[in-house]
Simulated scan of single mutants.
Amino acid sequence: MIKAGENGNDRSVTQTVRAQLALRDLVLRGELNPGERVSELQMVERLGVSRTPVRSALIRLEEEGLLEAIPSGGFSVKTFSEKEVFEAIEIRGTLEGLAARLAAERGVSRAEIRNAANCLEAIDELMRRDTTDIDLSRYVELNAHFHEILVGMADSQALARQLERASALPFASPSALVPVQSRSPEMNYILSVAQDQHHCVLAAIERREGARAEAIMREHARIAHRNLERALTNQRDMDLVPGSVLIKRRIRA
């Protein structure tokens, strides 16, 4: 039975989530320009919701790193240098490496190993079935799931929170740059290397090899670096990078 007031709370939560999603979409699609000031009142009018959910959305996007507070009040849309984007990916890889090491050193259950192995088997099957035209949307879904399982194995809420923050930047998440690979003649090779690293890190965790598990996941993030380097030299590829409108590219000769 729903108690009095619960419907109001549910509506408030729904409005807050809706405001967060809508505001994030405006930023990532470039409808709010990098560096543009974003005020609470402005977003109330634009999103069509009340001030409380808008305020929560603004604070949430600041926490995610997409907005930054400005001294005069309000927020501005953040811009990122190429160096900052590479660093964001490196930070995510470092944290995932720590998660793998903690999982290996603390030990994980057979059920957790089986769960991760099932996910990898699904990726293997996908890659075997579609050798010439891999379903990237399904791959991205399974890849994200495996990374989530890995973080869960570490059994650290503090680390999970930091990883959630690091991965909130759209170009730094584990699958963010996979679409760039779709235009590379080496796509299948790169996906095979990434999948082999998945299998190797799971084996290292199962064998309690913490240092090896950590090193594999840090190296795994380098695939994203490689995809980013490719995208930065080709506008068509850059258009596939989530949040690319926020990246200030340096002038190349």
Score class of each variant (00 low, 15 high):
residue 187 M to V: 08
residue 181 Q to V: 06
residue 175 S to K: 08
residue 233 T to D: 11
residue 237 D to M: 09
residue 226 R to S: 14
residue 193 V to Q: 03
residue 216 I to T: 05
residue 172 A to I: 06
residue 199 H to Q: 09
residue 163 L to P: 02
residue 183 R to A: 09
residue 230 R to P: 07
residue 174 P to C: 01
residue 212 R to K: 13
residue 177 L to E: 02
residue 166 A to W: 00
residue 197 Q to K: 10
residue 192 S to D: 10
residue 229 E to I: 10
residue 174 P to S: 01
residue 173 S to C: 11
residue 205 I to V: 10
residue 180 V to W: 00
residue 186 E to S: 13
residue 169 L to R: 10
residue 185 P to H: 08
residue 177 L to S: 01
residue 170 P to S: 03
residue 216 I to E: 07
residue 172 A to E: 05
residue 197 Q to G: 08
residue 235 Q to A: 12
residue 203 A to I: 09
residue 196 D to T: 14
residue 200 C to V: 08
residue 226 R to P: 05
residue 170 P to C: 04
residue 231 A to L: 03
residue 182 S to V: 01
residue 181 Q to G: 12
residue 206 E to A: 12
residue 181 Q to W: 12
residue 218 R to H: 04
residue 173 S to P: 08
residue 236 R to I: 11
residue 199 H to T: 01
residue 176 A to V: 04
residue 191 L to S: 05
residue 172 A to F: 07
residue 174 P to V: 02
residue 188 N to F: 13
residue 204 A to P: 00
residue 218 R to D: 06
residue 169 L to M: 02
residue 203 A to C: 09
residue 205 I to C: 05
residue 200 C to M: 13
residue 197 Q to C: 05
residue 225 H to D: 15
residue 235 Q to N: 10
residue 211 A to G: 11
residue 200 C to D: 14
residue 202 L to K: 02
residue 185 P to T: 03
residue 225 H to K: 08
residue 199 H to C: 00
residue 228 L to A: 04
residue 175 S to D: 11
residue 222 R to Q: 15
residue 233 T to Y: 06
residue 167 S to P: 06
residue 168 A to H: 08
residue 209 E to L: 07
residue 224 A to F: 04
residue 238 M to K: 01
residue 237 D to H: 01
residue 166 A to G: 05
residue 234 N to M: 05
residue 231 A to S: 06
residue 164 E to F: 11
residue 198 H to A: 05
residue 180 V to L: 02
residue 206 E to T: 09
residue 219 E to H: 15
residue 214 E to P: 07
residue 217 M to K: 09
residue 170 P to T: 06
residue 180 V to E: 00
residue 200 C to N: 14
residue 196 D to I: 11
residue 173 S to N: 13
residue 174 P to E: 03
residue 187 M to Q: 13
residue 178 V to D: 05
residue 198 H to V: 02
residue 173 S to L: 06
residue 212 R to W: 09
residue 211 A to T: 12
residue 234 N to L: 04
residue 192 S to M: 08
residue 205 I to R: 02
residue 213 A to C: 05
residue 218 R to S: 03
residue 231 A to E: 02
residue 175 S to Q: 12
residue 173 S to Q: 14
residue 220 H to F: 14
residue 212 R to S: 13
residue 182 S to G: 11
residue 231 A to R: 06
residue 231 A to N: 01
